[in-house]
Amino acid sequence: MKSSNLLTIVAVVAVAFALFNLLVTINKVGDLNSITGYAEFDTGTADVEIESAVHIRFVVGEDALDWGTGSVNTDPATLDSVTSPYNDANWDCTPPDCPLDVGMDGGLELENYGNVNVDLYVDTTENADTFICDDDANCIATATHDFNWQFEDLGTTASCTDKDIDDVGGDEAFWSGWEDVCRSGDPCDVGGDGLFVCDEFLALDTDDTIEINFQLLVPISAPAGQRDVIITATAIESL
């Protein structure tokens, strides 16, 4: 093939591509008025609609509590998530199995990182009888045993503006004192979502976090073994 013919063919192809490209570009530019944030008028109105989103999460690193391994030397021993070293003198433990050794550093921290205020419910899978005494009849009937929780507001002003506990009858006081946990399915469990803890859990940057602390009273008669309980928090958009 002569080089001039080759040149002509390639040139025609190039022009054809360029024309096709131009047509597609014009067509796509016409579609740009549908993209997110496109301003329809010269008054600067942004065409964005943000839907409400309910999102809560336990803060990473504050999403599990473990008191390690130990035994009761005097009845009862107290473990909590508030005061370091998180166990009293009635609890015997040996490093590296004590609470501080296994990473205990406070309660569970729950954050509302959605964009709407929510109603907050919390429940557990166990109560004191099943968690502390492991359903042992002697422990349940005769020994002091407790599984309590307490809620603390970590907001700069307030993360929960309406601290509510329906069945307990109090509100603010509940947040500063130890109360029995609410096991799923027990009377305290409102509609299957758990204990109604907060009526307005805010979604503000500086006011969106609460801490759930726990206290365990463990009797000498508590059966040996590993104990685990799941804490579940449920959020429903506030009306």
Partner: peptide, 25 residues
């Protein structure tokens, strides 16, 4: 279409060893 996360769970646990002290139980 980002899915909502209205429910979250965390775990709490410890291990009890057999007590060597005499107790009232």
């Amino acid at each position: 279409q980002q899915p909502s996360q209205p429910t979250q769970s965390a775990s709490v646990g410890f291990t009890i060893e057999k007590s060597t002290a005499g107790g009232t139980g």
